[in-house]
Simulated assay, not measured.
Amino acid sequence: MRRLKIEKYINMYLNNYKDYKSEWNYEDGCILIGAESLYKATKDKRYLDFILNYLDKRIDKNGAIDNLNPVEYNIDNINSGRVLFTAFEETKDEKYKKAIESVKYLLTIHPRTLEGNFWHKGRYPYQVWLDGLYMAQPFYTIYSNENRDENGLKDILTQFKNVRKNLFCEDKKLYFHGFDETKTMNWADKETGRSKNFWGRAVGWYAMALIDVIENIDESNFKSHRDELIDLYVELMAGIIKYQDESGLWYQVMGLEKREGNYLETSATLMFAYSLLKGNRLNILDESYLEKGKKAFNAVIDNNLKENNGNLELTNICIMAGLNGLIPFNGDRDGSFEYYISEKIGVDDPKGVGPLFKVYSEVVLLDNKGGY
């Protein structure tokens, strides 16, 4: 019953999909990557066609990507590049290979903190957000792995280890949302540079980043790098499951579940469900984690995928949240609890739908083995 419901939703969503922005962007990338996961799990060509139709509107025959500004220094712009590897593999069209190099160039020129991590964006100098690890590191990993670039993989590992050092809370076993190396932003602790709270989706981005990077490292050639990342991932997931609500869902702000105004949020829950199921499939997490992931996915489908005037909607998605940079954006994003619960809640946003596609692809793979 759930599979019929979600497949109806996927078909409806993709058939009616409108590009999120006119320029190259990470939100469309969430849907593209979700469709890629579905294609790999089902071998259904309509998902590949969706990806290629999108890319062909944005990439010319020489591999140039329309409306991509290199000196914006926006780490989010790396995210959509992940599907270019599949596009090239399936079509052998050289324009996709050239486009991959265009995206890699963005990383080559991207500014970094003194410790070596990519800035979140040009407008957020010396800041590292958990979100950015998902936006850049899986693409960077696939590229480095395919080119047998051990220096690239060492760089990736170092960036994750820096995040562990700067953002992990030993007491709560969770990661804070952001780090300001200058310790000058109003949301940053003046001693540690850390933001104040554990935003669910930020932790979700990070969980997906880790498991996607782990999957794309060749164990036969780079086992030690992979093993170190697995240690970080296992530690993270052990912390995350402590905060799962009895409903199966997770709250918008983790660690403050009982505080008035906090709410059960869909996108973070789906990201955690995906990470749990995939970690089990890769033989990293045991069956107890698998059951928690299944419970989370089922809870979203049963409670947050709702019918409205004959259509299905994915509800309770935080539309956007972030932290202050040099240029004001949507008021004071000060990292407080009050800020995170004040952001708009909506339906069908790519930041929730993309992870839904990804976790459903894991369900399909699990079901094919008789395990769901």
Rank of each mutant, 00 (worst) to 15 (best):
T192P: 08
T192G: 02
G193Y: 00
G193W: 06
G193V: 04
G193I: 09
G193N: 07
G193P: 03
R194P: 09
R194Q: 15
R194T: 11
S195N: 05
S195W: 01
S195G: 12
K196S: 05
K196E: 08
K196Y: 00
N197G: 00
N197M: 12
N197K: 11
N197R: 11
N197A: 06
F198H: 10
F198W: 07
G200P: 07
G200S: 11
G200T: 06
G200N: 10
G200Q: 11
G200D: 12
R201C: 14
R201W: 13
A202V: 03
A202F: 03
A202T: 00
A202Q: 04
V203G: 05
V203D: 15
G204P: 12
G204Q: 14
G204D: 11
G204W: 06
G204S: 10
W205F: 15
W205L: 11
W205G: 10
W205S: 12
Y206F: 15
Y206P: 13
A207N: 09
A207Q: 06
A209C: 01
A209H: 00
A209G: 02
A209N: 06
A209R: 02
I211Q: 07
I211S: 08
I211Y: 03
I211D: 11
D212V: 02
D212L: 14
D212G: 04
D212M: 11
V213G: 04
V213S: 10
V213Q: 05
I214Q: 01
I214N: 04
N216R: 09
N216L: 09
N216F: 01
I217Y: 00
I217N: 01
I217S: 05
D218S: 12
D218I: 04
E219G: 01
E219A: 10
E219I: 04
E219N: 06
S220K: 12
S220V: 03
N221K: 13
N221L: 15
N221S: 12
F222C: 07
F222R: 05
K223M: 13
S224H: 07
S224A: 11
S224I: 08
S224T: 12
S224K: 13
S224Q: 13
